[in-house]
Design a protein around this nucleic acid. Structure first.
Lengths: 256, 256
DNA sequence: CGGCGTATTGACGCACCTCAAGGTAAGTGG
DNA sequence: CCACTTACCTTGAGGTGCGTCAATACGCCG
């Protein structure tokens, strides 16, 4: 829990917070009073925001940095279920469950981050605001959609195809040159995010050369995105709007 | 689209409709006016309610019968992404997407069914009602949760374990004797719902005998549910609340 | 009877996992 | 400066779970 010391109100420390999708259409006065209940925390790299199994008492906004959602199994395996980029939120899904629930994964800072905490009850109250409720509905349905698409991709695409799909959109999501960029994460992290083993990741990386993507250390060069596109869509479930799907899928990296 | 003939209002034809979770907490007068916009359709077994790729213009309530959500890939494979039982709804997720969207799967009646249609706009208006919005939020977050759990299960459980998990909850969801019941669906349908091949289903069925479940034609006998439970949870991601997970997972069959 | 829908069983292949062995680069201590 | 560790990645050999293809069997109906 953040320190109880008197901290600046979130909207003073992070003026951007009022432009988040969650608050779109909310009038300024209401927004002021809503944001008043937030507490700010500085979370250094590698530190936990919460742990798998903790009770769900808070809703979080990632103001800067990024958070890894890591799910661990009793037998020691783990899987990165999501990477939450700055500007996105954490915990929407859990809070509207009836009855107390537990965190399904641990949240760990991938880099030094700043987080705003809100009590779970706050979000429920905020949802009484028509605009907020609508924004939440849009965000939740978008999230559901990305989960559905991810499931389809897992079922229909090979590891190489999933990786190509991921790489193709990664540059886009991070605002990089989509044809030539550096991986913003370690390969191990990406492998974990894709739900494959590091070794498989390595092997896929080299095999991707023949499909138009070159991976040299952390450098990615997309030689022919149309060809890569075709490779990905080979057995994709919705050839006609595969691009849209990938955009969505890539945003799983970045669900609002 | 249902015939434009003058049909009874949904709340007259299906008094139960007002007791759906979606309408919990909505006052009677508002409910009357909301339901007024619904159209009733009789949908015979094997008929399509809509097809994959159709524009999403309606929101549906399944008043009786059940609907299969079938997703097809261009290479001819298909997967049952969900089975919607009577009393549940269809299309919540799509309607709150910004911009027009397409159906992600086809909806086919598994048995003779009765469906109430609402225009997509109706749902957006209904969401202005605070109680409806809250119900939708709960339902969507529940749905997201089931998707997450399903993904975890796919990653961590073998086909046999998933099948055991499914069978263990199937009786429960359908209100049958959980130790001795008949499959309410064909084996091929269940295999498709689990995302495995029929042949694999067959093989798993026989292998389950050694774990405490006997499958004889359509008859299921659960000899020792505690043992089955242990078998399922072996590499489940949340041993301590695995039961809860399974309950949720089983409800994927039946998302409200 | 033949045709059809449904289920089972066997043989085989493939994609990915697993385990083990390097290999490179950055950081640490002497 | 070098030896050592640690983190991260790559490569190879072998195993396995499930998909794929093919054959067979059973019940049902026209």
């Amino acid at each position: 829990m953040p320190t109880s010391r008197d901290l600046p109100a979130p909207q003073q420390a992070f003026p951007d917070i009022i432009h988040m999708p969650l608050f779109r259409g909310v009038n300024h006065l209401e927004l002021e009073s809503l944001l008043h209940h937030g507490k700010i925390q500085y979370l250094p790299r590698r530190k936990h925001l919460f742990r798998q199994g903790d009770p769900v008492d808070y809703f979080y906004i990632v103001c800067s940095g990024s958070i890894q959602l890591l799910r661990e199994t009793p037998d020691g395996r783990s899987h990165t279920s999501d990477i939450i980029l700055k500007g996105k939120t954490l915990g929407k899904t859990e809070i509207f469950k009836s009855g107390g629930s537990r965190q399904q994964s641990s949240a760990i800072a991938l880099e030094d981050s700043i987080i705003v905490w809100f009590p779970a009850e706050w979000l429920k109250n905020a949802a009484r605001n028509q605009a907020v409720a609508l924004n939440l509905l849009m965000s939740l349905s978008h999230y559901s959609r990305t989960l559905e698409i991810e499931a389809v991709h897992k079922r229909t695409m090979t590891a190489s195809q999933q990786m190509a799909c991921f790489l193709l959109r990664l540059g886009e999501v991070h605002g990089l040159d989509v044809h030539h960029f550096e991986l913003p994460y370690s390969k191990a992290l990406i492998a974990s995010r894709l739900g494959i083993e590091r070794e498989t990741f390595s092997r896929c990386a080299s095999s991707l050369k023949q499909h138009g993507i070159e991976v040299q250390d952390a450098k990615i060069v997309v030689h022919d995105s149309a060809r890569v596109q075709r490779y990905i869509c080979e057995c994709c479930s919705a050839r006609e709007d595969c691009t849209a799907h990938q955009k969505l899928a890539a945003k799983v990296l970045a669900v609002a």
